[in-house]
Design a protein around this nucleic acid. Structure first.
Lengths: 120, 120
DNA sequence: CCACGCTACCGCGTGATGCGCAGTACTACG
DNA sequence: CGTAGTACTGCGCATCACGCGGTAGCGTGG
């Protein structure tokens, strides 16, 4: 994948956002992410991320047996997790803005950050 | 650094954008990136990226001796490099939009992608 | 009944990449 | 001469997404 490197550090917050409102199990989180536009995400990456987030205290988990298939390991976001989500969301926004501005410099900067012909 | 992972796959395009208009040498590219808001970038990362881009044909290079200090290895973007820059810029924009939408779902989606209470 | 296929999860090894650190070298300044 | 700033390089490490293979439950068709 060519966007594979872009996911670094972002999968965490993407997964948190995905289950922010509804608990989810791995296989389903993969589907949700793909539906959201992160098409190329590998399932192993998601399972790994869920485990990592669980280990860090951002998620809690419970297993639900299923009649039509294997059991499902649901993950639920914790208070810790919501805090992380908010922080990382803000971090992402700042970073994305910086990058976007660097890639497509807007000629008329908002809030007079610098005037047109500035040097340093 | 906490944004260290966010840089993955993005430093390439950031460096290309940095020297798109003016050739630059490593030490200076680091300063430009930091000035642009990518404060936490390590110098070794930039030097490595420049070398990688050069190896891939996106940059050409020439050495300029300097009176007041060590020599400077300038890098200049090639046609190849400009093509890469445009492609990766588009990739970034798509990715950033997807992520932003996932993190802060806009209640009124543009272009009626889905209506408010939709389920699946 | 067995082979498939889908759902669901896990572990292992790999590859890309950013980073810290150490080292080299040149200039200027006290 | 020692120190600081400029400028570049190489080495090893850590993070993290991914591919692949394996396990397992369930349903369907030959």
């Amino acid at each position: 994948m060519e966007t594979t490197q872009l996911l670094k550090g972002v999968l965490d917050v993407a997964v948190l956002a995905t289950i922010r409102d509804d608990d989810g199990y791995g296989y389903d989180v993969v589907r949700r992410l793909r539906a959201a536009g992160i098409d190329e995400v590998g399932d192993a990456s998601v399972y790994g991320t869920l485990r990592r987030l669980y280990a860090s205290g951002a998620l809690s988990t419970y297993v639900v047996p299923s009649d039509d298939g294997p059991h499902r390991k649901y993950y639920s976001i914790t208070g810790e997790g919501r805090t992380q989500l908010d922080e990382q969301r803000a971090t992402w926004r700042r970073f994305a803005d910086t990058m976007t501005e660097l890639l497509d410099p807007s000629p008329a900067r908002r809030a007079g950050v610098r005037t047109i012909g500035e040097k340093k």
